[in-house]
């Protein structure tokens, strides 16, 4: 499973950073930064799901290949 983050859609709600800090950091202006590239480690899949499910701007998606 992979995770995608759409910077254009992100408005800095910071829900992902609160729910999944292992996967998301924030920049100085409060916009999200995706911390991983490629496959989500199995132990973080639940947190990735939470980040996607709670983004008010639908900026995060999980992709299963």
């Amino acid at each position: 499973m992979k995770i995608t983050y759409n910077r254009e859609a992100c408005q800095g709600h910071n829900r992902c950073y609160m729910l999944a800090p292992e996967l998301f950091d924030v920049d100085d202006e409060g916009y999200a930064i995706l911390r991983i590239d490629g496959e989500i480690p199995a132990e973080l899949e639940e947190k990735a799901q939470l980040a996607a499910d709670n983004c008010p701007e639908y900026a995060i998606e999980l992709v299963t290949e």
Partner: peptide, 20 residues
């Protein structure tokens, strides 16, 4: 609640600046 895309702080470019 595990799925909660609420818009309490607004949506779009005017997302509450003070939300954090």
């Amino acid at each position: 609640r595990q799925q909660n895309r609420h818009g309490a702080f607004g949506l779009g470019i005017h997302r509450c600046l003070g939300s954090n």
